[in-house]
Computed example of a mutant assay.
Amino acid sequence: MGKGSFKINGLAGLSKKLKKNATLDDVKTIVKTNTAELTEGMQNEAQVLLTGHWEGKKFVKPTGTTKRSITMQISNNGFSGHTGPKTEYAPYLIRGTRYMVKRDFFFPPLRKQKQKFKSDLERLMQ
């Protein structure tokens, strides 16, 4: 690995590295903060992209169900964060169908938050 990079597999390696630099509570805070920011980013993106659709000649206004279904959960004693839409039709919105263009409110915020999460952990490791 190059200079300035790190690789840690599992909580044991992470715990060992953090004993010198920080505490596991700092990691839990980073996980919680980044999960909350990702949830908010997905909700904002859904608000912008999901503006309604046409059914024949009738325009159907959005109900906001998909945006409201994007919730976060923290598990694994604070070391794992999960977020995303819970509606069963969300994958069709994200990827599109042959009849509908995609309205990807999922991956752009995920890519953005992934970089921030990685930099937060790297800062903690130094």
Rank of each mutant, 00 (worst) to 15 (best):
P108A: 05
F117W: 07
K118S: 13
K114Q: 12
R98L: 07
K102I: 07
Y92S: 03
I94E: 02
D120E: 13
R98D: 08
S119W: 02
Q113G: 03
V101P: 08
K118Q: 13
Y99H: 12
R103P: 00
L110R: 03
P91I: 05
M100A: 13
E122Y: 09
F117H: 08
K102Y: 05
G96F: 05
F105D: 01
F117C: 07
D104T: 01
T97H: 10
F107K: 04
D104M: 02
S119C: 00
F117Y: 14
Q115P: 03
K112Y: 01
F106D: 02
R98P: 00
L110F: 10
R98F: 06
T97D: 04
F106C: 04
D104I: 00
S119M: 09
F106I: 05
Y92M: 12
F107A: 00
K118H: 09
I94V: 13
L121W: 05
P108Y: 09
P109A: 10
Q115Y: 06
R103M: 11
S119H: 09
F117N: 05
F107R: 06
Q113V: 07
E122G: 15
R95H: 14
P108E: 05
R123T: 14
T97Q: 04
R98E: 07
L110D: 00
F107V: 04
K114W: 05
P91V: 02
I94T: 02
F117R: 03
S119E: 14
K116C: 07
P109E: 05
L121K: 06
Y92H: 02
Y99T: 05
R103L: 14
D120T: 01
I94N: 00
L93E: 03
F117S: 05
K112T: 06
M100Q: 14
R111I: 09
F107Y: 10
D104C: 04
Y92D: 03
F105T: 00
D120A: 14
P108M: 07
L121P: 06
P108W: 10
F117L: 14
F105G: 00
R95L: 15
T97M: 09
K102R: 12
R95Q: 11
F106K: 03
D120M: 08
D104F: 04
K112G: 06
K116W: 01
S119G: 04
L121A: 09
P108H: 11
R98I: 13
S119A: 13
Q113K: 06
R111W: 08
E122H: 08
I94Q: 00
G96W: 04
Q115L: 15
R103Q: 15
F106G: 02
L110I: 01
F107P: 00
P91N: 02
R111A: 14
D120Q: 13
P91T: 07
F106H: 09
P91M: 08
K116F: 10
Q113T: 01
F105M: 03
F107W: 07
R111T: 09
V101N: 08
L93C: 06
R95T: 11
F105A: 04
K114T: 12
M100L: 13
F106W: 12
D104S: 02
R95F: 15
P91W: 09
K116Y: 08
D104E: 05
K118A: 14
I94P: 01
Q115S: 15
